[in-house]
Each structure stands twice: as C-alpha cells, then as structure tokens.
Design a binder for these strands. Sequence first.
DNA 1: GTAGCGCATATTGGATCCGATATACAATAT
DNA 2: ATATTGTATATCGGATCCAATATGCGCTAC
Lengths: 226, 226
Amino acid sequence: MALTGVDVSQRASASDIVFEALRRAIITGEMKDGDPLRQDAIARLFNTSRIPVREALTMLEQQGLVQTRRYKGAVVTGLSVDDADEIFDFRYLVEAHVIRAAVPRMTPGLLAEAGAICEALAVERDPQPWGDLNRAFHATLLGASGLSFHLAALGNAMDRLDRYVRAQLLLTEGHERSNTEHRAILAACAAGDADGAADLTVAHIHGAHQSLRAHLDGIKAGFGTG
Amino acid sequence: MALTGVDVSQRASASDIVFEALRRAIITGEMKDGDPLRQDAIARLFNTSRIPVREALTMLEQQGLVQTRRYKGAVVTGLSVDDADEIFDFRYLVEAHVIRAAVPRMTPGLLAEAGAICEALAVERDPQPWGDLNRAFHATLLGASGLSFHLAALGNAMDRLDRYVRAQLLLTEGHERSNTEHRAILAACAAGDADGAADLTVAHIHGAHQSLRAHLDGIKAGFGTG
DNA sequence: GTAGCGCATATTGGATCCGATATACAATAT
DNA sequence: ATATTGTATATCGGATCCAATATGCGCTAC
C-alpha cells in the first residue's frame, strides 16, 4: 500500500498549543511586561478548560517568561537592564562557542538555506516577520553544531530578549546594519572561517546590545524591574 | 510589635513539593534512566490528586529530566555519551566565566561559608550527603557572581549530569582528589585570583568528566540512548 | 471624616469525573 | 499454528466541580 502515514500520536496537546501561542505573544511583545494572564480568559479564548492553560503557564514559568504568585496569578516577566545585560553576556559567550563548532559542520545545502533566509530578510519590511526570519537565520547556522543543550539555552536567552530587541529595531531602523552583518557572517561560514564567524557573531550581538542600551537610556523609563 | 513574620503566600504548592521530590529522586540516581513515572502512583504516594503531579511532570520535562509521550506517560531521561560530553563542554565554558565574575565579589563571610562546606566535605563518607555538599560548595562560590541566568543554566546542566557523576564517584573513590581540588579553588578565590580559580574549576570539571568517561568505557554498557 | 472591620466577588489551587488512547490478551478464522 | 481481530484493562488528557485565598466595597465606630 502506497499510503504515507503521519504519526498521529505526535499531535500537539492542548497545553502545547496554548503554550506556543502565549510564548509567541510574549516574545513578540504583543503582551507587555506585567500583563496578567488570567486562566479563565485564556481558557475561553482557546475554547478549552483551565487545566491545559495552567500547564502552559507552568511551562512558561520554567522558561522564565512569566512569573506566578500563589493565588495571585501569572504576569509577563519584565527584565531589568542588569538582567538584559547578563543575558547578552551569556549570548556572547555561548553563541561564539556554538558557531565555532557549527562552521565545520555546515553543508552546502544548509548554507544555501541560510542564504535564502538572508535574502528574504533583506527585502522584508514588516517587523514581525523580519524578527521571525532573523531567528530562523541564526537558528539555521547555529543548528549545524548539533549542540542541542547549548541551543536550548540560547533559545531561552533569545526568548527573554526578543521583545526588547524587536521593539528597538522597530524604532531605530537597525535592519540595514543587521542585514549587512548577516551577509558577513554567512560569508565567513561559507569560507569555513570559524573564528571569523564567531567574531562577527559577537560583534553582531554587541550591536544589538548597544542599540538596545542606547534606546533604553534614551526613553529613560520602561523596563519594569520584574 | 517585635514579631518576625514569614511570607505565608510563598509556601510551596503541592506541585512544587512533588516536583522537588521527583527532581531529587532523579538527580541522585534513586530513579534510573527509563523508569516510568506513573501519575496515579505518584499521586497516591504524596496523598494528592494527579493534577499537581502532572504539573510537576511538566516542569521536569521543561528541565529535560523526563520525557513524555502523549498517552504513554513520562520516563526518566537518559543521556547518551555524546549528550554528556556536550553538557560537560557547556560547564567548562560557562562555569569558568561565572567563577571569574564571582571571585571579585566574594565577601569574607561567603568564603568562610564555603570553607565550612569544604571541611564538611572532607569528613563526609556517605555519597548522598557528599553529593549535596559538593553542589552546595560550588553553588556558594558561583552564587557570588549574582548572574542568575547563568546560574540557572548551570544548575540545569548539573541536574542532568549529577546522577552519573555520583554513581561514578561512588565506585572510583574520587572524593579525595575532589576534596583537594576544592581546597585549591577556595584558596584561589580567597587570594582574589579569578583566572586561577577559573583554571582550577575547569580542571576540576575536566577530572569529573574524564573519570566518568573512563568509568563508562570500563563498564561499556549502560547509558541508554534516551 | 476616617480608620478599621466584615462581607461579596473574583481568581487560583486542587479533587473528582469522563472520554480518548495504548497495551495485553483472548477468540476466531484461515 | 499463526495471524488477525475484538475486547478488557490501565493510563493519560481534559472538563467540571469544590475549596482556599485575594481583592474591593460598604458599613460601622469613634
């Protein structure tokens, strides 16, 4: 029988769906720091009961995206400037390590894939899809390392920073610089220059970090102490 | 009124209690790789319903300590040798960074505290409390850094490795070497030698890593590919 | 008029119940 | 005898229900 099957047991559970939707709403900035997450409201929104919602909230709490206080509910976690600095430091350290490990393992196919994303980034104007493509670009390159533990930790770091980076990019038009840097990183990877790619990656993150800091100093306020 | 209060709203929920108990059972090796975690059985054990158990299992899954398959239940996650190598690499990288940041922030009081744990380690023969003290020693020193995100990631890395390290220590009597290395690390910290402490820490982790590899190569089997 | 108390309501945490799925075993047909 | 199918049981995911706690408002006492 020539029937292609799908593993139906891998379908997402209700908790997974709610989790992904909430996670996305938080990292894109759709939900702001301190916004409360009411179990009832979310359950109605997804046409489910509160049980899957609570499991989604516990997942988000483990990831540090929301904070829960007993009998008071969950709110979106805010980052202090110090917190953001620390997580950027983490990225400098780990992302350099991972890209170094990834470069020698990149196949032509993977480089082509990353190149395609890079091109898509260059013409994308909408901030939301741009942010998604940006993550996809880095995930593709870093993924070649096969270092799943490092990648999970980095993914969490990005999740915690993403909404601030996106908000800042939206205002400062840093897309152009980002795009040029992406091309440079990709070129180094294609050339098999692991150290170069690592340096460029660190510089790339540094740029985002500095822009964010400037932006925050500028508006002065914001950034709940979480 | 001179009455010191405690924030009663911070009492652990049932989920937290179950989570901590299961986490401990897993990281100490009390539960073996692949052991199933039956919701009913655990609920009865803690005299609660399955709801808090499920939330605990969700947390454990987020930490990578158990794996859940829909409608089939959760089992203790096993590490392949490659997985273990990767997590050790993560520790080399991050723990060196954190200890470097921690040294200049260590107070005499904190050093005294670490010293006390170090002494306790020297006379402790039981493997389980020795493992707990070992974690406490490193947590005390690293904690001085105040780098909460790094510390959380390192804690998770330790959680994933702990049972293997404990099992290996149990057989190879690596306690003595560990104790000497602890004293050296502590001395470097007390001397304010951040780079020295970092080097010694890396060497310390390296020792554990090599012992574990040797041990695994020796017994050959074990380590489900989980 | 104001500080403090008590009740009403909203919201969360946990228990119980029900439907869905997996697994093991028995029955049956070839 | 073996392979297939049906069924019984165990276990899980989710819904509903109840208890515990927080919050807001009105009332009372001074």
